[in-house]
């Protein structure tokens, strides 16, 4: 947990999942630690802390970023969306539904990062080819599934979203 604010702290204001927060935060605190520990929104995971695995992916002003290699102060006056923003109540987002139906997850630790990366992909490219899917997801590591079911899930999600 981020403790006592020192001289190295700044007051920041940001929106996370549509809610505005104002917090004093040490300048060295990463965005993911801030969201998880300070705001208690823990759906975003940390797999490597050095920008390789993609588990910590969040949407930053609508762009996917790795929140482990960004500082919380960089999010001042910006808007962040995490996996918690995807479903409404019990109603899963079509991408989540497609992952569920296609067994696109096992331990679930990589899943939030994949879901947001796919959301970004499908917003730019509603009908991606297999090669495009592989290329776009190559920055997200899954250690459990072997990716086949994730790729199937993305194709299914694309169909669901085109139908919407």
């Amino acid at each position: 947990m981020v403790q006592e604010a020192t001289d190295n702290s700044r007051l920041i204001k940001l929106t996370v999942n549509g809610i505005e927060y104002e917090r004093k935060v040490e300048t060295r605190v990463t965005l993911v630690d801030f969201i998880r520990n300070e705001l208690g929104i823990t759906g975003t995971h940390v797999g490597c802390e050095h920008g390789v695995c993609g588990a910590c992916t969040v949407m930053f002003d609508g762009q996917p970023v790795r929140s482990c290699i960004m500082l919380a102060v960089q999010a001042d006056s910006h808007s962040v969306q995490t996996v918690e923003s995807m479903s409404s109540g019990d109603q899963l987002h079509p991408i989540q539904q497609a992952f569920w139906e296609n067994f696109g997850l096992q331990c679930g630790f990589c899943t939030p990062g994949f879901l947001l990366t796919v959301q970004d992909l499908l917003s730019r490219n509603p009908n991606p080819t297999d090669t495009e899917i592989r290329e776009e997801l190559s920055g997200n590591i899954c250690r459990c599934t072997g990716y086949q079911s994730i790729i199937a899930a993305v194709k299914q999600a694309a169909i669901y979203m085109r139908q919407e």
């Binding site: 929104i41 899963l92 989540q96 067994f103 997850l105 879901l115």
Partner: peptide
């Protein structure tokens, strides 16, 4: 091949992995 029962919480970011747990005064 029924859909996995644990998946709903994982998909919604509602899993409880160890670093998601906090205790007071920790």
């Amino acid at each position: 091949s029924i859909k996995r029962l644990e998946d709903k919480r994982f998909l919604q970011g509602q899993g409880h992995y160890i670093d998601d747990l906090q205790l007071p005064d920790m």
